[in-house]
């Protein structure tokens, strides 16, 4: 039962991710920055296995170099200036979910 619930949670999270990835984004270097404003989306999408949630900036930098294709970070931790700098410098091709929580 618990296992089924976990599977459902992951599926639902991936669906929310799909919705976000069909939204608008900005290309910076090899990265694509999706600005996410909907709080409900953020809660759902954070559970997706293909999303690496960044607790702080160091975490974010590490996530940029791992295998997970989507990296989530709060706009309150990473401002526009630093986001642009880090996205331009990395060779990783990531979807950066830049959330307004």
């Amino acid at each position: 039962m618990q296992q089924n619930r976990n599977v459902m949670n992951k599926l639902s999270a991936e669906l929310f991710l799909k919705k976000i990835l069909s939204g608008n984004y900005e290309t910076i270097g090899f990265c694509r920055v999706f600005k996410v404003d909907n709080v409900a989306d953020i809660a759902e999408v954070s559970r997706a296995p293909s999303v690496a949630v960044s607790a702080d900036l160091e975490d974010f930098k590490r996530n940029l170099e791992n295998d997970v294709p989507n990296v989530l970070i709060s706009q309150n931790l990473l401002n526009q200036t630093l986001l642009r700098k880090l996205a331009e410098e990395t060779s990783a091709e990531k979807n950066i979910l830049w959330v307004n929580d």
Binding site: L57, N76, N79, Q80, T81, L82
Partner: peptide
Amino acid sequence: FSIDEAGKISLDWT
């Protein structure tokens, strides 16, 4: 230390 157009602050400790 950076402050962007929206007035948000970021500190890159490392």
